[in-house]
Amino acid sequence: MPASPPREQLLLVDDEEEALNELAELLDGEGFRCHVATSVKLALQQLTRHPDIALVITDLNMPEESGISLIKRLRDHTAREYLPVIVCSGQIDSVVAGELDRLQVQGVFRKPIYHTRLLDTLSSLFPLDEVQEKLRAVP
């Protein structure tokens, strides 16, 4: 039985490597191709290496540069200004929420992430076609 074709490529950005790898494993299991980065600098390098990345999932609070900084850089870059972004963070106050709304993020998830809700969001952004659904249903 041929493996189902991979779904979209995602970039996961989080300085907590254990959480990053857990999320990558979950999403890989759902057919997404995940690239990971532990900083904004590495995320930008991944975006250059993999121009077909269709969505970024980023943490906000990272030591060197914040997830908001990453999103602003994406919005200022002509080729990536409309790249969908989902934010995952343990702390989001009303000021940050307002900034994220202004930056047009696709979703905001509090850590720890409720995986079912995230998968529902990704499925609505990137629905499986009928062939992919049938291939995924076969054991």
Rank of each mutant, 00 (worst) to 15 (best):
H77P: 07
L26P: 03
S89G: 05
L42S: 13
E64M: 12
K111L: 08
L118T: 02
L74A: 07
I57R: 08
G67D: 06
H50T: 01
E133C: 07
E16F: 05
V105E: 10
Q132A: 14
Y114L: 07
L83H: 07
S124V: 03
L47M: 14
L12Q: 10
Q46G: 05
V108C: 15
D59N: 02
R136N: 02
R7P: 13
L10S: 02
V131G: 01
T78R: 13
L27E: 03
E65S: 14
E81M: 13
D14I: 06
P2F: 09
V40Y: 01
P112R: 14
Q9L: 00
S123C: 03
R49E: 15
R110N: 12
V105H: 10
K134P: 00
I86N: 09
L26G: 01
L10V: 09
V56G: 05
L20Y: 08
S124P: 03
A79E: 07
P6Y: 12
P139A: 15
V13C: 09
P84W: 02
K41A: 15
L118S: 13
I86D: 01
R75T: 10
A79G: 08
V56A: 02
P5N: 08
L27C: 07
G67E: 10
E17W: 05
F32K: 05
Q46L: 10
L20W: 07
E8T: 08
E65A: 14
V87C: 13
Q9D: 10
V138W: 12
Q45A: 14
N61V: 12
